[in-house]
Design a protein around this nucleic acid. Structure first.
Lengths: 341, 341
DNA sequence: CCGTCGATTTAGATCGATCTAAAAGCTTTT
DNA sequence: AAAAGCTTTTAGATCGATCTAAATCGACGG
């Protein structure tokens, strides 16, 4: 007798209802904070909940109610601190809405992304925040739309028809170019890496447009390795151009960090002999010496925005799609100086 | 007629069963890859699944089966790249076991941790990987045990009775101290920050023991600010000691990064005038100049171990608790040199 | 004293899978 | 041909909440 009822001891809403002398339905209303139930009754039910140590069973609730209070977040790479900050912003907002985050890594591979999205669907998430893997087809997003699964794109966008939260990368590039131009730099290189996606193109085009509108050569675009450890060794690329650059703008701070080391290895003084601008303004930027001038894209804020877009869409699935693009901000520190020719 | 059946169009197992001319039960067996079902029948059911575009409903399954294929991960701070790497390791293993990760941020606050754990329970996670917030009471973990919720501690440990995955921080400190001693350093400072927890004490005690066993003064322990941006400004602490240290070991790489900048600001050359050792060996360590010598704790591997411990426990809830402590490895680079007195 | 109305409360069906225990089809043994 | 022993399939109950539609209860106007 005693050992038999070991696993059946879960407290259910029915137990609560019985103890409070109400029906299951009423107890359910109390839990969901419905205004329909009388004050005295509510009190009794709440006491019963306390006394019995009842825990809500989302699993049962989701089944009937067709909502799971769960959102999926799919990013290409959890190791990158940038996505950690993004995730942090998302989690904060989703949590404060009383929901939880299911996180998954696509590894920037469309096949894995397929798999992961399928799993999200099986788990019945209410919506998904997706940083699409490189080479994601618009058809893929259309398919998700057919599932009627609310979706927000973040950092990269594939479809115009779907909510998007990001930063104005092109404007950020213009800020960097204009700043260097104000220091009389005329020959400016652009160092890139990684897979090609919307953010990639926006940054490159932003650089090109800004350079062209100042009448400068916009074609000095160098590809460096993806791994931080190998970027320093690619610094020589800066010194093999037909025209010698006096400054380099980096696609992101990882590249800036790598090149900063490479320039140091060559005996150059960043900010005096050569100017360097990063992009994203991760926390390390300020700790580097010389302190890294960088264009801030505020990943935590982007995450919060993405989460808010999703919450809004859950509230009204029919609302027209929105694009929220944050302003970037140039954080001037010490890694740039006047052009020395 | 057409507009009415909009939301009821979900394909269920019953639909699959009907199309394949089998019972719901048989269809269920096919999905769960049971060996009980005949080859020809299995084929028919799988075709039906394909044809109808059936998606498994975890929500319904979990209810009857008492398992959700979901694990919770609770960390104190998602913004810290270290936890990003940990999470990455956990996610990889959990994913390959066909489960998903629900992630939550405790902010290193016990009250939030309470809340978050409650939510995990409501969502019916099968188990939890927890990096306990500072000041977590053992009683808290006992409570979780009463819930019969499988738990793994990681990075910090509160209870001996519960699985734990971490690194051998004390041994790591010994490696750092021994290395510096081999370079003839005798006066060595230790820079710490952050909340106090088991990992904190292990590192400090590791430092102390290693110093004492070499007959050196083990009491030069300096507290620096938590925020990276402010650590450089605390560098002066190194030069206000009764005995002047020639080297500093840092509690983690964040501090090392900060002090590296602070030493630079004072015109000192790290690795020549002053030696510096970091802890954790985050990816930035190699990019810094001079390259940072650091004790590697391999957070991705710790994450994988933690996940494996949880999977093993889910498989056998009665097995005795295990502690898996990874070896650390000293990565010698350029930030240390011989003692100059 | 009855009918109506607003505020509460409730019985019972329901969501979509899994589980249990037994049935149905086979083949092989007696 | 019946019994026994497999393998394969199934009916029906079940998990724990929510939803729908209706019942109950006072109060109040006529």
């Amino acid at each position: 007798m005693l050992s038999a009822d070991r696993k059946k001891n879960r407290v259910t809403l029915l137990d609560v209802a019985r103890r409070a002398n109400v029906s299951r339905a009423t107890a359910s209303l109390v839990i969901r904070k419905s205004p329909l139930v009388g004050a005295e009754t509510r009190q009794r039910v709440e006491e019963a909940i306390q006394a019995l140590g009842y825990v809500y069973n989302m699993g049962a609730a989701r089944m009937r109610a067709e909502r799971s209070r769960t959102v999926g977040v799919v990013v290409p790479n959890l190791t990158n601190p940038f996505f950690g900050e993004l995730l942090s912003g998302i989690e904060a907002l989703i949590d404060s809405a009383g929901m939880v985050v299911i996180v998954a890594n696509s590894g920037d591979l469309v096949e894995r992304q397929d798999l992961v999205m399928r799993r999200m669907r099986e788990h019945g998430v209410d919506g998904v925040i997706l940083c699409p893997a490189a080479d994601t087809e618009p058809a893929f997003l259309d398919r998700i739309a057919e599932w009627e699964l609310p979706l927000v794109q973040t950092l990269r966008h594939i479809s115009e028809e779907i909510d998007y939260a990001g930063a104005d990368y092109a404007a950020g590039m213009r800020q960097a170019v204009d700043y260097l131009a104000s220091l009389d730099h005329e020959t400016i290189a652009f160092a890139v890496h990684g897979p090609m996606h919307s953010a990639y193109h926006e940054r490159i085009e932003g650089f090109r447009d800004a350079m062209r509108s100042l009448g400068l050569n916009a074609n000095m675009i160098l590809r460096v390795p993806d791994q931080l450890a190998q970027i320093a060794d690619a610094t020589h690329l800066l010194f093999e151009q037909t025209e010698q650059p006096t400054a380099v703008i980096c696609f992101n701070d990882v590249i800036a960090l790598g090149l900063s080391g490479g320039l140091y290895d060559r005996g150059l003084q960043v900010g005096r002999n050569f100017s360097l601008i990063g992009f994203d303004d991760v926390t390390d930027a300020e700790a580097l010496r010389p302190r890294l001038t960088s264009v801030s894209t505020a990943p935590v804020a982007i995450g919060e925005t993405a989460a808010q877009l999703l919450l809004d869409r859950l509230a009204d699935p029919a609302r027209p799609p929105r694009r929220v693009v944050q302003e970037t901000q140039l954080r001037v520190r010490q890694s740039c100086g006047p052009a020395t020719v």
